[in-house]
């Protein structure tokens, strides 16, 4: 496309403010955080004296940080798995032409519209070990299933069982969102393709496995990126639902960062945790951006 000089200037004038804002509020602040992470800033007033890797060593040696890393890995894995599986299932069923599809679609989507703070408080009470789900389980005689939920500090290897209620709450909130994504994807698949397969005698499962799922793969990928970067930064849901949990069983880097920075006034160490989170998110985002860019060039 050939543009005249004025057209090009106009384009630059339109884009410049947002580019400037992004440069300032994203990249300058990232740089600032990195600088703080190498500084001796502890206490209220900034102190940018170079501290080398002192803060990094302190954070990496903290048992809480290692728990954070494992919790993030397990939470992200199970949260993605359940949300995508449930979303796909709901979309598949709705796509079959259930009566009242509009009604169900709205119902499934609603949780996404609620603030995480509200969800956190609600689920905190649902899983309360004395008055919550346990009380229901006891009345129906399923005492074997009664346990401490998010207040139980036990673990399997490095997996804290207290994460299970948090994963359930987060999946409840976002399955509807993945459902909407998959539903859009399913509607985009030409019906005659499936019709043809059916005429050729393919089973429903075969159609799903060999036709629908491959065509939905880009959506699975997109969902993983959106939900993944989101679960790596999770804060409000967990903070209101369980806090850090007993022995930090439901602790996440964002909570650690908040408390280290604003409760303990260890700004340097807080910045280290922020940098660690940035690295975690880039592990997910950078390959995605790279592949998108490659596609655009091709």
């Amino acid at each position: 496309m050939v543009a005249s000089r004025t057209e090009r200037l106009k384009a630059i004038a339109v884009v410049a403010p947002s580019v400037g804002a992004i440069l300032l509020f994203v990249y300058v602040f990232i740089g600032w955080t990195v600088r703080t992470s190498f500084s001796q800033w502890r206490g209220i007033l900034p102190d940018y004296t170079f501290a080398g890797f002192d803060n990094y060593i302190a954070v990496l040696n903290s048992p809480r940080f290692m728990i954070n890393v494992w919790n993030t890995i397990f939470f992200t894995a199970f949260f993605l798995l359940t949300t995508i599986a449930l979303g796909l299932l709901m979309a598949y069923i709705l796509d079959k032409g259930v009566r009242g599809e509009n009604f169900f679609r709205t119902v499934y989507l609603f949780p996404m519209a609620i603030s995480f703070v509200v969800t956190g408080v609600a689920w905190r009470w649902i899983f309360n070990p004395t008055v919550g789900v346990n009380a229901i389980l006891q009345t129906v005689g399923l005492d074997a299933l009664v346990w401490g939920w998010h207040t139980d500090p036990s673990r399997l290897g490095t997996f804290h069982l207290a994460l299970i209620p948090v994963i359930i709450a987060a999946s409840w909130q976002l399955s509807g969102y993945t459902m909407a994504m998959f539903l859009a994807g399913l509607r985009g698949i030409p019906a005659d393709l499936i019709e043809q397969a059916r005429i050729d005698g393919a089973s429903e499962f075969f159609i799903f496995r060999k036709i629908l799922f491959p065509l939905l793969r880009p959506i699975v990928f997109a969902a993983m990126i959106v939900l993944g970067h989101f679960s790596l930064k999770i804060f409000d849901l967990v903070y209101t639902m369980t806090g850090s949990g007993p022995a930090f069983s439901t602790d996440f880097p964002a909570i650690f960062m908040y408390e280290r920075t604003f409760r303990a006034n260890q700004y340097g160490q807080g910045a280290v945790i922020a940098v660690a989170m940035l690295l975690l998110v880039s592990v997910v985002i950078v390959p995605y951006l790279a592949s998108t860019l490659r596609k655009e060039k091709a």
Partner: peptide
């Protein structure tokens, strides 16, 4: 100070 108190809290949580 807050940093020390936070560390003591962390020890007690474990």
């Amino acid at each position: 100070n807050e940093a020390w108190a936070d560390d003591v809290n962390s020890v007690m949580s474990f």
